[in-house]
Amino acid sequence: MQYDVLREIGNIGAGNATTALSQMINAKIDMKVPNVELLEFKELSDIVGGAENLVVGILFTLEGQIDGMMMFMMDVDASRHLVNLLLGNTDENTSSEFTEMELSALNEIGNIIAGAYLSSLATLTNIVITSSVPYMAIDMAGAILSVPAIEFGKIGDKALLIETEFGDEIREVNGYFILIPTINSYGKILSSLGL
């Protein structure tokens, strides 16, 4: 049941995020129905291409009536593609190093996607949630995932991962979204939904 609720929040959030991204890039972006998975910690990094896969993680802490954290993660190739679209770079630019300008573009993409998820959560629950500025890290997937996984670890032995696949005519990219309310906040979300 709780799982279905989070999937639904994921669906609506993904829709909002797609619209926002399309407007920002000024191109059509499609997003598929997100895949929601509850995973053992051991399996977590296999899903995102292995623990050593180089990824960009953008993390926000949550405050207000709900506290916790959320993170948006993409592999470096996907991030490069989005940055190229956003800044009008040619596709020949495949560098895994990002300039200052590109890093702030990535932060902005993270902001848009996270904002879209949060506003769908707020709409469904009538709960006010505010998020921090984005914090970004580029490193091995396992290392990036350890931060939200530890938060999940305080309440259980599994982590909830929402995988979204989106793209333009040229290519599809995968993004992963993780939302971790604290135990108290989780109860608040469910009760506000009448569950």
Binding site: S45, D139, M140, G142, A143, L145, S146, V147, I150
Partner: peptide, 14 residues
């Protein structure tokens, strides 16, 4: 036990 080896990938805050 030797000659085997043991590994863990992508340690972050763990």
């Amino acid at each position: 036990i030797s000659p085997n080896a043991i590994t863990t990938l992508g340690l972050g805050s763990c």
